[in-house]
Design a protein around this nucleic acid. Sequence first.
RNA 1: GGGCGAUUAGCUCAGUUGGAUAGAGCGUUGGUCUCCGGAACCAAAGGCCGUGGGUUCAAGUCCCGCAUCGCCCA
Length: 549
Amino acid sequence: MREQLVELIRNALPLLEGAGDPEALAAFPVLVSIPKNAQFGDYATNVALGLAKVLKRSPLHIAQDLAGRLPANLTWLERVEVAKPGFINFFLKDQAFHGTLLQIILRGEAYGRMDWGTGRKVQVEFVSANPTGPLHIGHGRGAALGGALAALLHATGHTVETEYYLNDMGTQMETLGRSIQARALEISGREITFPQNGYRGDYISDIAREILQENPEALQEDLAFFSRRGQEKILQGIREDLAAFGIGFDHWFSETSLYTRGLVDALIERLRGSEIFYESEGALWFKSSAYGDEKDRVVVRSNGAKTYFASDMAYHLEKFGRGFDQVIDIWGADHHGYVPRLKAALKSLELDPEKLTVVLVQLVNLLREGQPVAMSTRAGEFVTLRAVIDEVGKDAARYTFLTRRSDSPLDFDLEVAKKQSLENPVFYVQYAHARVQSVLRVAAGQELEASPLSFNSLHLLALPEERELCKTLTEYPEVVSAAAQALEPHRLTSYLGELAGLFHHYYNHNRFIGDDTELSLARLLLARAVGIVIKNALNLLGVDAPEKM
RNA sequence: GGGCGAUUAGCUCAGUUGGAUAGAGCGUUGGUCUCCGGAACCAAAGGCCGUGGGUUCAAGUCCCGCAUCGCCCA
């Protein structure tokens, strides 16, 4: 709808008085927005205000001129008005919105899918938690965000690959092994001194116990054994938690593989002789300060150990080598200082840093009845993602994680997420969908079906609330588009809240099924369209749309 | 000390590439309910958009200073 208006305006621009160079006008951005105030119409444009300088005429005059040159007699346009400073306001006929109801029902699941991203290959890398412990609630937020972004990009036509980068190297794997080994010894009744900096969570003892049960002779094994078995078990747990959360990955990328494939060494060899690397105090440094980082970084320590930074450079070089047009990394906000460094690295490797987008995710504050739930990783006491899923369910968790923009801290109240009442945003939306289905079931029992065949009845939808609902449904594809473009899935939860609100309000004041069969059919069509849009949107967020609750 | 981000109603937050009278939920106050799902509904009150400048026809939105908070790095 909005696009049609843009088209209309664009076509009229060259006809303007004193339009001059048609190419300059063609490049002029035409913005059509939805006014907050209904008295300014369904849509409005401010082109005349912008053109005032270009054309050196008063905006009001331009607006009047332009409005006069728009085609009359359009079936979907009621009237066009020019307002004060130079806005042009468009008032649409009801039937303009009725058309979308039909479109929604005909397209079904495909309504809201677009193809503007076709041909663009995008990778979304997220979660990527170290395999040293179970996923915690912060990872859950990253997972929900990554899953939704992947779905949004897919819905807009992109070719999307999801990836989990596994930091399975180095001292932390060794620490994991030592921790498990120590617990295994402890369980067997030995006196131990628990390793300093070891992982102290209860899950370590659980794993040690499992290993001993599977193999009573395990104590004979070396450290590498405990590291390997520990990692396997933790990874299995992570996969299971993600599966319970509805998240799967196309690729699991192992940091170790970068070394076995010689990619890290190749990277270092490639850059060793170049100006951006230098040796100092026995270590190899990357001159990242030359690329906007605040200081230079060590790549190879004096003892020969390669740093994480070396791995990350090699990893991103490898990623870009796979031909992605855009690479999206989702990180915890505490890593934000790492962004300029990595971008500097890409630049030095002659890769376009613009192709890397790092989305930072802020902390989650877990609450119960408004009171903070203690969360300390230091002592190994943290709230796991699994615990949250078990308590409030996958749907409530995923939805709640996506109710705020990712760079804003999130308060997650377990009690609210569990509530079966309308103050729980997830319930509010799912309930709207269940209500739609309930109405449709009752209608079906009376031989009433909301089929496209009842299109002729749609003109009976003349109430302001019905118009508002239809208009909101029309906006859905634009919301998907904007959310995908801005990488902000929370726009969908906002939209869903609004749509569900309108529907509940309408439901509370109007009957879908009444004596007037024609009217009933039209309203059922509306209900069905609302149901489809809610389901499609929830689907993008990884949340189920229940038939009954 | 340096960097990044934030500051919008009592609370938690939206606010679409700068647009017209700044929105929602919760909470508060007052009212309503025999209904396809009451697992409610209607209405009201509530705002110096942290602060001071700047750009613009137009600033919650963009730029600069300051204050406060959070995080990262020293």
